[in-house]
Amino acid sequence: MLPAMTSPVIDLDTLRAGARLAGFGWSDAELEAIRPQVEAALRLLRALEATPVDAEPTTHYRTV
């Protein structure tokens, strides 16, 4: 789990590492530009973890 998933603030090192792991070599300026949106997205995604779910994930669904 990335530190950002438990912290409201994500630092540049974490952004660099995350981008590199995903295969992107973005500059520090590019990463700084998206930092607020990444933080907002991770805050939103945390709501998924708070949702009680006992269902299997939807995969190939509702095709009849």
Binding site: E30, L48, P57
Partner: peptide
């Protein structure tokens, strides 16, 4: 481009969890 870049920080567990929520 910004939206796509932000998506690079969405983890596999988020995706699967979202598909679970989708079933709900």
């Amino acid at each position: 481009a910004r939206r796509l870049k932000v998506a690079a920080f969405i983890g596999g567990q988020h995706y699967v969890r979202a598909q679970q929520v989708r079933a709900l």
